[in-house]
Nucleic acid binder design. Structure first.
Length: 156
DNA sequence: GCCAACGTTGGC
DNA sequence: GCCAACGTTGGC
């Protein structure tokens, strides 16, 4: 079975890798995504797919961990909750508009692989993350990119 | 805080 | 369907 690899962005001030480290069973709900392209990627995720955990909008943006999809796409409950900041009146139980997945920590990297470092590696120059103006918070990562970054994470 | 690069909204 | 106005993202 061929898995797809992914990258998930989060603002650490909202949800950080350490929040996931400390979560029960180290499982987190990846909810609140309100972009259609990102939602479609969430919906495409399959059980046991792997993803990089990326910190964005912070002092040192970069990849900080690896997570596994432990529950594939299901309706985002926060869209149905009027008290939630992610509430969307256009979503309903019968016709959910947004989806979430559950992720479980595989490992927190020993060091952050910064955005600047990623940009220094020619094999990664076509990475979606590095494309100008890219604002997707959920995106696929090619096998080759995954392997390059994975080996970087093992270097001191 | 700035601002470029988006995505979304809504009038027409 | 077009497109201007607006809101958001996210690096710097």
């Amino acid at each position: 079975m061929i898995n797809q690899y992914w990258l998930l962005k989060s603002e650490p001030q909202t949800y950080s890798i350490d929040d996931l480290v400390q979560a029960p069973q180290q499982i987190g709900h990846w909810e609140g995504v309100r972009n259609y392209q990102a939602r479609n990627f969430l919906r495409d995720m399959r059980l046991n797919d792997l993803a990089f955990f990326y910190h964005s909008s912070c002092k040192t943006p970069g990849i900080v961990g690896i997570v596994k999809i432990v529950r594939a796409g299901y309706p985002d409950i926060t869209a149905l909750d009027p008290a939630s900041q992610y509430f969307d009146p256009k979503s309903s139980v019968q016709n959910p508009r947004w989806y979430q997945v559950d992720v479980q920590l595989v490992k927190k990297l020993q060091r952050i692989i910064t955005l600047g470092e990623l940009r220094q590696h020619p094999p990664l120059e076509n990475m979606l993350l590095l494309r100008q103006g890219n604002r997707l918070s959920v995106m696929p990562v090619s096998l080759n990119e995954w392997n390059v970054i994975n080996s970087l994470s093992l270097q001191p």
